[in-house]
Design a protein around this nucleic acid. Structure first.
Lengths: 344, 344
DNA sequence: GATTAGCACTCAAAAACTCAGAGTGCTAAC
DNA sequence: GTTAGCACTCTGAGTTTTTGAGTGCTAATC
């Protein structure tokens, strides 16, 4: 009928969504009049709900059940929340802060704790993706000789992230040479990001002057090996939490979900795209076509650990998720993590 | 009746167990005579089964269902398997070897891949515990200055394991001093295990001569901080696999299990005790009182990565597990991992 | 004209019931 | 010692019944 949502319609839709979020049961006209103190009779509500259904905002699983919000309705609802963002209670805030502090200073530790924290405060799944190594600032490289044919290469970036790799070599290299190699490289690579370092090394490997100096050639080849892989680290915590959600009570659904999250790559793809935009983003149900995440939603935010090093963290839960509660949690956590890791 | 298990009894018990492992259904006298070509009538089998029940080796969920082996029966069965150990097929063996090679050289990578491998070849859960750092041989220590008040300490052990830790300091230390400190420590700690290193550092910290040299005091304090934590790394893979097991089809059970494995510490406690004995060990159902692992069994083996560095790996699955298949897998994997990580 | 009371109708989920079949234990025959 | 036969038991699958929450429509009401 009327394509525009009336104020009353909006209020009732909200009521349906909130009830449904709480109970996970289709909600009927009766329930709404009782719990939400609208001065309306069930019959009126029914009429409005019928309109809402017409507009594609509600569906009913069957004739004689209550109604359920569609993804479209959630989208509307979430947008209105995003506008009128409420703040976290001081208590929650403190708890988050406290637990972040606890984690210590090591970036990996902090991120892991953040993921745990997201999971436990939201009671859904917490997920954190570490920034790509490539964007980190190079700080130093070391070669440690373990035995005649094994070298451990250690790559340290400015923010304290460490990447190490065991290399096999054909020809023994003296420890002094290793030190010299490292010094040479450290001089050359100062101030670059890891990504740039990689390019530089590849370029250098081609260049003529290096061809003549076999030690330097080796050095560059070794460091190139070290730096080659850039597997994004991903922390997924609280998987068991979603087992408590009634919509996944049946075994088949559960299995599907767990299988999906076992391959971290799918998750990575999904979160990678929210790295573009800044701030809180929300993907509802099938809005993210990557995963056939029937009935799952994703609340993410980007965080920064340096000028250009951006990571993503967030909460994965059922579409029927307490957005009003989760959004500020994600938002605040992202900001806190940024502050913790960036400021130093 | 007769407390001694007759040969026939043993054969029938085995038949019950094997059928049950396959089908997860209580097995009746009929089924056994059909599938296992014992020249016996169902009635006879029934009599024998009745005896077995008397002995506490079988139970029936109710009067008119078939019978199910008890933990005691599994124990018997497993022991007989352990005696007459069969070998892996060449195919499986090759597959395991191939995948281990793939993982590269980094110890952590190898162990993670081993866990994945255990899970996928057994189709249960794979678990690997890295040897305690304490037993590793100290190789070298480095301090990298990140900013005026932040130092990255890197601890390398002989086998290529790296442990690093971000330290905050009150007073700036020059990079040269850091190098000197590292040199001093590396000289002092050569040849010790990480565990001994820790003791030595604590002792040194007390000793008088150190009190006078503030730099050395700092060095020791810093390295002591680095080495303090020894959190055992644990790789648990293929959790989704157990979702396929019919005995965990119902949601409540699943939840319980996932919750239990979420805290890695329980798992750690459990596996720690199998570190004592050497070789393959099997814990059936409630034999391991630590976890109230109703219906779960554990097949483990120790592996070595050095003279005294012993880790544990294994498979966790339902009590109704294909022991005959799993045991050689665990055994072979443990030996292979030992060979890969020890030999160098 | 919007709202609401009233009522017939619908449908899923729960409860109650039926029944076939797998399995047992016992007894008597081989 | 083994087996055929039989009465008995119990679960699980399938059906039917019942219940109750909820709807949509119509007519009365504000």
């Amino acid at each position: 009928m009327e394509d525009q949502l009336s104020d009353r319609g909006k209020r009732i839709l909200e009521a349906v969504i909130e009830d449904y979020i709480q109970t996970a049961e289709p909600v009927g006209s009766r329930t709404i009049t009782r719990s939400h103190a609208l001065a309306l009779s069930p019959a009126t509500v029914r009429n409005v709900m019928s309109d809402l259904e017409e507009m594609g905002l509600l569906t009913s699983p069957h004739t004689s059940a209550g109604r359920i919000p569609t993804d479209k309705a959630y989208r509307l609802y979430v947008n209105s929340i995003l506008e009128a963002r409420q703040n976290l209670t001081a208590g929650k805030r403190d708890e988050i802060r406290r637990r972040c502090r606890m984690a210590g200073k090591d970036p990996a530790e902090v991120l892991k704790e953040a993921s745990r924290l997201l999971s436990s405060t939201s009671s859904y799944m917490g997920v954190v993706i570490a920034p790509r190594m490539a964007a980190n600032l190079f700080h130093q490289m070391e070669f440690v000789k373990l035995s005649s044919h094994r070298i451990l290469a250690i790559l340290v970036s400015q923010n304290g992230t460490v990447q190490n790799r065991l290399l096999e070599i054909d020809e023994e290299i003296a420890q002094e040479d290793l030190v010299r190699m490292a010094n040479y490289l450290n001089g050359m690579l100062q101030g670059l990001t890891i990504g740039q370092v990689r390019e530089r090394l590849l370029a250098e490997l081609q260049s003529e002057k290096v061809q003549y100096d076999s030690l330097m050639k080796k050095a560059i080849a070794l460091s190139e090996q070290t730096i080659r892989t850039d597997s994004a680290e991903i922390f997924l915590e609280g998987q068991a939490n979603i087992l408590d959600q009634p919509e996944f009570a049946d075994a088949a659904k559960m299995r599907e979900i767990f299988r999906a999250f076992e391959k971290k790559s799918t998750l990575l793809d999904l979160l990678d795209r929210s790295m573009q935009a800044e701030g809180v983003q929300i993907f509802i149900g099938t809005e993210s076509p990557l995963l056939k995440m029937e009935g799952m939603s994703l609340v993410t935010s980007t965080y920064l650990t340096g000028k250009d090093t951006v990571g993503v963290l967030g909460v994965i839960g059922p579409t029927r998720m307490g957005y009003g509660r989760v959004i500020p949690i994600v938002d605040y956590t992202a900001k806190l993590i940024s502050r913790m890791l960036e400021g130093e």
